[in-house]
Amino acid sequence: MDYFKKIFKESIVIVLISSIIGLFSGTILSSSEEILYSFPIILLLLPALNSLIGDIATVLVSRLTTHLFIGSISPKIEKSNRLIEDFYGLLLTLCISIFSLLGIGYLFAYFTNVQIVNPTLIITILILTMIILFLFLFVFLFISSIYLFNKGKDPNNFLIPIITSLADFLSPTLIILFIILFT
């Protein structure tokens, strides 16, 4: 049972913390019930938006960790060509993916009769949210990876579970905040 114990011991704390962050996201959604009923497309797109930013952030952490281990990024908070290349590569991937997501999402909504209200505003808000989140996560994950690496820890083990929940929390929060601000 050594493998069982190892998995359980290493995972339990971070999984519990992530679940608590997840409940905060739920609280924000529940408090904004009226917005969800007014713009049901938000609820349709939300799991995909969370997955998208979570996946991009996971790729970023994995790549940063590999760069740090093989030495193509020095463990200092400074600009490098490798970092700039990763930044633009992932930002472009995110932008293309957002447009695909919105295109497929609105098609799904059209064919399943989900009410589409003020699409220009909602699309602007969703794009703005994803780009702001990406910029924030890029800086946060870069600094955290350097810090953890310098402490002798593997950034993958700590940052991947936490970013899933952080992205799940931050995306509905920003979307709802922007809807309140712009409507």
Binding site: V15, G26, F169
Partner: peptide
């Protein structure tokens, strides 16, 4: 809806 995001996060964490 309080529970849903926490359950979806578990997908990534577990």
């Amino acid at each position: 809806i309080i529970i849903v995001p926490a359950l979806l996060s578990l997908r990534g964490n577990i």
